[in-house]
Design a protein around this nucleic acid. Structure first.
Lengths: 250, 250
DNA sequence: GATCTGCCTTGATGCAGATCAAAAAGGGAA
DNA sequence: TTCCCTTTTTGATCTGCATCAAGGCAGATC
């Protein structure tokens, strides 16, 4: 908690850093150095483009500046499971590992801030704060992954969909209107039905059916295929199967 | 990889540290200090005992010395999902968080090495290596969690069982006979059928049925309910659905 | 040895979600 | 506008695992 507050404070000072860019603090501290040594550069990807394939050589680490990317694992026979959703500020890659462990794909147009791996590792060794920030972020990701394990292992299709919508809605609401709890939230789904199914461990047909069911039951309102309105966040939360207190950790 | 080698080297010097105790290195560096300041202490639990309940105040972090513990999440209606298996050397708790996020239960008799949280955090701030080691370990856990997401979301019951057996067998084999690939592996299951089902997102009946099926098909040999022999590791791996090259990351 | 108790196995049946198939709805491009 | 192509929806059917329900077995207690 205290660390998060510290990060928010520092973010005020970050010139080119996007809102919610948690990795920012490491960047800011190291920015001047990094630019000088040319270890930092930006890369853009178009929606749908693959950033890197699992197993490929990966000589950089990066953080998402704008856009959304996904991490997916694929089995030999083609079964796919998304294991991570990368939002602005999220970190990709792993110090100490030279090849990618997952497929990384841009689902929207994407800009990433990359650091050459070796110099980044050196920087980490000499700047203790960076490892500590990365640890914080990684622990957050681990918690998210474990929450997702509960979803994948034990929730029904309807609960899975509701949970995903709740996560996206909450993130979106906090972006647009931090601190306020809007009674009515509208947003564009950043994922196709197929991507949703890969994330939730379902088929795309089941995703579609459950979206229709939630619409029929008035839990959500669909305008076109992508735009979603949540009339009552409470009603949506009732469908997720999560504890009603909703207080998310940290 | 290089970091792992470094850790192994340092382990030689660790007096009371159990084999494979990765957290050891942080401990060793800080051990003298810790003992002096009395921030470190050991606790024992009996098999079946709950170490801590989700939501409870947790003013320590710890690492497992001997025995096995589990992390589980429970939904309001009682559905349970195990989200982590803690083996000797694994770390529990989170710097910066004062309450437990999961139920922690001892499945065997368990000894944990605990550090009072606040002093541990201070130690982390003043000893950069500790954060770096914790980061390594947390990234490993994140990879394991993501592998588990693929299992929970996309694997069949038979593949899930085979995967779990493969993980336990591999760990066991590396403990007993590091570096050698034994053609025939025998071990005791550290989990009940119900715990296996909680881990795999199945019911205990399905676990039992699939164990019987693997036995019938000669993939495993059961002696009693707990002792398992794997006649051919290759045959077992064929049932997991995993890539045949089997090369696990890192 | 008899009974109890906590796992574990096995059988019968049901259902949520997968699979197979086709139609509908957008959304660009010409 | 029309056509084409991708995405989404909807329908019909199938199936893997859950659920419900008995037993079985082995170690503990008396």
């Amino acid at each position: 908690m205290s660390v998060h507050r510290e990060i928010r404070t520092q973010m005020q000072d970050c010139g080119d850093c996007p809102i919610r860019h948690r990795a920012v603090c490491a960047r800011c501290e190291a920015d001047e150095l990094a630019q000088l040594e040319q270890i930092k550069y930006y890369r853009s990807y178009q929606a749908g483009q693959t950033v890197i394939w699992s197993g490929d050589k990966m000589d950089f680490v990066a953080s998402v500046v704008t856009g959304i990317a996904t991490l997916t694992q694929t089995m030999e026979d083609g079964r796919r499971q998304m294991v991570g959703l990368l939002l602005p500020s999220d970190f990709v890659g792993r110090p100490g590992r030279s090849s990618a462990a997952y497929d990384v794909t841009a689902t929207t147009d994407l800009v990433m801030c990359c650091f050459r791996r070796k110099p980044f590792e050196d920087m980490m060794a000499s700047t203790p704060h960076i490892a500590q920030r990365l640890l914080e972020m990684t622990l957050d990701e681990l918690d998210a992954a474990r929450e997702w394990m509960l979803l994948l292992g034990r929730k029904t299709a309807r609960e899975k969909i509701a949970s995903l919508l709740a996560i996206i809605a909450r993130r979106d609401a906090s972006l647009k209107q931090p601190r306020a709890v809007a009674p009515r939230i509208t947003f564009d789904l950043p994922l196709t039905r197929e991507e949703m199914s890969d994330y939730l461990g379902l088929t795309l047909e089941t995703v579609s059916r459950q979206m229709s069911a939630l619409k029929r039951d008035g839990i959500i309102v669909l305008d076109g295929k992508r735009q979603v309105t949540i009339p009552s966040m409470d009603a949506l939360m009732d469908e997720t199967g999560d504890d009603s207190d909703g207080g998310y950790l940290v």
